[in-house]
Design a protein around this nucleic acid. Structure first.
Lengths: 201, 201
DNA sequence: CCCCGATGTGAACAGCGGTTAACCTCAGCG
DNA sequence: CGCTGAGGTTAACCGCTGTTCACATCGGGG
């Protein structure tokens, strides 16, 4: 299926073509109430259309969620690879770059963060597998950097550390907007760098 | 309603009375698939009965979830208060105590951690309100300690820091069992203490 | 001018899952 | 021995929600 060139090119960049509006609105709703709890009618209403109209743009409700999660994972993976490459050979610099990248993403898209780790389970097994694979590769990006920073640590320890750092940074949906964004960014960055470099006793 | 002394006393401590078995099994299933995705029949099957048998022990499926989440919140709040009191007046000592407590809980109950922050939204509004109130008081326990440790920081900053620490420690469900428990405990504790005391730039 | 594809609508369908109802079993006890 | 209440079972009900269907609308070529 290398055809259907419409999904990738004409829609993404230009105006927020209905299809894009729907995805955005759905992300918001899914984050607030959980994917299973929002009806097709709710998503439709959010963009000023009735429920069944959705099916002119997506094969099913699950397909919407799948596309949403796949996009996030791909974006994170691509972004991290780029950012690490741009940081040169210094492991400490790469770590700072990864942290800055993840902090920015988490502050920009708290809704997507929420959906991604709450609703992965509602995907069909094949879709879930693809998302998990992308996530795994993203994690490995971090693990590689952490391993160079902690030469004595096992891979398992580095992986656990990476997950802990994600948990730390991805706490943005829980501490919504109380703190101004620059202050929040500085706080999370500082905490993450401290936690990432803390020696294991 | 000071009657019905059965729920509180005879059931909790002694043998895991059916009712308790159900709660435990449900917690496990809810954590794996999400509360909405688990059928009453699934919960029944997990303890060797049919679905409707559940209604001999709980008023509804939502009541199960509500009791589950309320218990967790109460347990955390009570535990943290106790642990802080036992740590004396030293803010640094109180922080270490809170971290140790949360790490232990997160390692013992990854399933409960998952359910608590994924399925809060399916509770009825009154139940959800009660759970949130308990959670808020738990957070304030941390905020108080963090505020004494960072005299210059705003309350909002301390609250954000607390949430970030929860995210860090509660990452246990994501890094399941790859690392031996003592190593995991040391890692999380070390990271949390570093993140908690990191100065804001 | 007419046809057509894209987009939307309202109504109807269908399956799933929580809940209820009616009935069974059986241990304990007066 | 017979009653009773706790705990189960099966079958049925019913509302909700994803999905489909048949039909409008309408802008833009041919």
């Amino acid at each position: 299926m290398p055809s259907t060139p419409d999904t990738a090119l004409s829609d993404d960049a230009a105006r927020p073509s209905r299809r894009e509006q729907i995805l955005r609105a759905a992300a918001q709703l899914f984050a607030e109430r959980g994917a299973r709890a929002v009806g097709v009618d709710d998503v439709g209403a959010a963009v000023g259309v009735t429920g069944p109209a959705i099916y002119r743009h997506f094969a099913s409700k699950d397909a919407m969620l799948a596309e949403m999660l796949l996009r996030i994972s791909e974006r994170l993976l691509a972004g991290s690879a780029e950012v690490v490459a741009a940081a040169g050979d210094d492991a400490a610099g790469q770590l700072r770059a990864l942290i800055a990248f993840q902090v920015e993403f988490a502050l920009d898209n708290p809704a997507l963060i929420t959906v991604q780790d709450r609703d992965l389970g509602v995907l069909s097994e094949p879709d879930a597998r693809r998302v998990r694979q992308l996530q795994r590769r993203y994690v490995e990006e971090w693990v590689g950097v952490l391993a160079r920073l902690h030469p004595g640590a096992s891979t398992a320890a580095c992986r656990a550390r990476a997950h802990a750092l994600f948990g730390l940074i991805n706490s943005t949906p829980h501490s919504a907007g109380r703190l101004a964004r620059p202050a929040m960014a500085r706080l999370l960055t500082g905490m993450a760098e401290a936690a990432a470099t803390a020696p294991v006793s």
